[in-house]
């Protein structure tokens, strides 16, 4: 017993080192912009850069539209599958898992090939970027919504609402959405965390998003990238923290990320 606990502490200790050394190193680096003093200069520089503000705003907008579109698409579909079309469940599940099989780099290649020539020319529109993000959000959003639906008795709730005279719109907006609040929130935060710093799609579709901005900064600056990494980590931490606050007691885990 004592022996095995030693090994447990050892593995946890190694894990903690792995987690924190890069963060500490980055933090240290980000505070060293002024020679020989600890300063927040790197952060000030980043925040004062109009390029940062612009790209962050752009990415945040993209994240907003992605979350909106993903919800409008996924919630009614998952609900309908639960309620009326259980035989479609395997197909829908398969499609939502496809982004795991088709990496983002492959997806963007295909999107460019299809949408850069008639009949659909979309490469000039941010809608294509949002569409790509929606596809990437499928696994996370569907899983969150599916878990949420499974946790409540969709059929009884729907039938109860119908028996009280509610129409489909009322049922979705007043009964299903509110009960899915926690699931939708965790889907939202996760999608936001993924989209905000995404590089592959944004860079290859040539949009001035935060990801390409950071990559560019990394090529010709030394201290600002470290400050950005810390800020980005804090943002991810905030999103995951929010998920855990909202899903406390439920089994919602946050898996994912754009590598």
């Amino acid at each position: 017993m004592k022996r095995s606990r030693f090994w447990s502490w050892l593995w946890i200790g190694l894990g903690i080192l792995y987690f924190f050394i890069p963060l500490l190193a980055t933090l240290n680096f980000s505070l060293r912009m002024k020679k020989d003093v600890i300063s927040l200069m790197a952060y000030e520089k980043v925040l004062a850069d109009p390029g940062f503000v612009k790209s962050f705003t752009f990415s945040a907008e993209m994240a907003f539209f992605t979350i909106l579109a993903s919800m409008i698409l996924i919630v009614p579909t998952a609900y309908w599958v639960h309620l009326r079309l259980p035989q479609a469940k395997p197909i829908v599940e398969f499609i939502t898992l496809l982004p795991f099989v088709i990496p983002a780099i492959v997806l963007v290649f295909g999107l460019i090939r299809i949408f850069s020539r008639p009949p659909f020319v979309l490469t000039a529109s941010p809608a294509l970027l949002v569409a790509g993000y929606v596809v990437l959000s499928f696994p996370y959003m569907y899983r969150a919504v599916d878990n949420g639906l499974r946790a409540m008795d969709v059929r009884s709730l729907t039938e109860a609402a119908q028996s009280l005279g509610a129409g489909w719109g009322t049922i979705l907006l007043k009964v299903i959405f509110p009960n899915l609040k926690v699931a939708l929130l965790s889907g939202t935060f996760l999608t936001f965390a993924i989209v905000i710093g995404e590089l592959t799609l944004a860079s290859l579709l040539a949009w001035p998003a935060l990801g390409p901005y950071m990559a560019l900064l990394g090529q010709n600056r030394a201290y600002e990238p470290a400050a950005l990494a810390i800020m980005s980590f804090a943002l991810t931490w905030g999103m995951i923290g929010l998920i855990q606050v909202f899903t406390r007691g439920t089994s919602g885990t946050a898996l994912g990320g754009m590598k």
Binding site: M214, L228, L255
Partner: peptide, 8 residues
Amino acid sequence: ASNFAGVP
């Protein structure tokens, strides 16, 4: 950490 990937 599993979501902290990419450029940062």
